[in-house]
Simulated assay, not measured.
Amino acid sequence: MKKLITLTFVLLLRVRYRITVNGLKELKSRTQDDRPVLFLPNHQALIDPVIIMSLLYNTFAPKPLVDEKQSEHPLIKHLMDMVNAIFIPDLNVSSRDAKEQVFAGIEEVAVSLKRGENVLMYPAGRISQGHQEVIGANSEAVSVIYGAPEARIVLIRIRGLWGSRFSRARGIPSLLGDIWKLLFRVLANGLLFMPRRPVHIEIIEPDDFPVGGDKKIMNRYLENFYNTEPDRNTEIPPYWWQGYQPIHGQSS
């Protein structure tokens, strides 16, 4: 059932997105290394976890670290339960209980890695506010790396989603609401003729990641990796009769 759902998402995503991936075959070929993998992508839009999971799930089955606020709808919650998601509250909530739940979630990530399970988490802790990824003083990924030093670090750089409906370049996005709009547009375009947004994904297991460094060094390394050739604010027409030419705006 899970493979069928993954295939369905892959087919739907391919209708709207022209996805190119570099590094996935090389990662899959390293079967001799059975250490758990900590996947660390940048977070351009609400849709990129769906894209990443569709690429990784059948081979690596990573447990995603998920903002519970984004999973309040029963359908999304059910899908997250199917992939054994680890839920944490909004990182911007300052209540004592919320902070304790965040610490518990981060601890569960480290424990999962120690059990040999793969995990997907976003070092920034939220979708990008601008065209560049800002991690700042966030320490969740660093805490996990310290807590599970045996894990392999795999970085994922996503390009092409800044300016999409699911990004903050268009205001405050809604995953479920915008997915329904996307499905409507797919049907309105006759399934096969919808203009597609180019999305490029690079998957790299660096050999120079500063595992022994402090928080500032690791976060700076991640930001430098994610912000190589920052995206422009790009809008893709939703319907074929509006043309296929991307519309570029400012990169802020």
Results as ranks from 00 to 15, higher is better:
L55Q: 11
P89M: 03
A98I: 02
V50Y: 03
I88G: 06
S54D: 05
P173D: 12
D208G: 10
E150C: 06
L182R: 00
P206T: 10
L182K: 06
N58G: 12
K215F: 05
S164F: 03
R30A: 05
W240N: 00
I204Y: 14
G160E: 13
V142D: 15
P62L: 02
N189D: 07
Y146K: 15
D207W: 11
L176H: 00
K99P: 00
E202H: 02
D33H: 05
H78L: 15
E26R: 11
A188Q: 15
G190D: 08
L120T: 01
K2M: 13
E229P: 02
L40D: 07
T8Y: 03
A85Y: 08
G190Y: 00
V93A: 12
Y146G: 14
S112K: 12
I19V: 14
P41A: 02
E223R: 03
K69P: 03
V83S: 13
L24E: 06
S174N: 15
F9K: 04
A137Q: 14
N224E: 12
N58M: 08
D81F: 05
S94A: 11
G147N: 13
I158F: 00
M1F: 01
E205R: 01
W180Q: 08
H73N: 12
Q129S: 03
P206G: 11
V111H: 10
P62Y: 00
R220D: 14
N138C: 07
T20C: 04
A169P: 09
E150M: 08
M194V: 10
Y221H: 11
K216D: 11
K25S: 14
L183E: 11
I127F: 02
F184I: 13
G213C: 05
Q32M: 09
Q132M: 05
S112T: 04
Y244I: 02
I47H: 10
T6G: 11
A148Y: 10
Q245S: 14
V50E: 01
L4Q: 09
L46N: 09
V93M: 01
R96A: 14
R18Q: 09
I156C: 10
V50I: 15
R35K: 15
R159M: 09
G249H: 15
I179R: 03
H78F: 12
S128C: 08
E202W: 09
K215M: 02
R30S: 09
L120K: 06
I247K: 12
S112W: 04
K215I: 12
A137S: 05
Y226W: 03
I145L: 13
I172E: 07
V211N: 06
L175H: 04
R14Y: 00
P74D: 04
F39R: 11
Y17T: 04
L222R: 01
K216R: 09
I201Y: 06
A188M: 15
P210Y: 04
T20H: 02
Y221R: 13
L182N: 13
H200R: 11
I52C: 12
Y146Q: 13
I203Y: 10
N92K: 11
E107G: 15
R185V: 01
L7G: 06
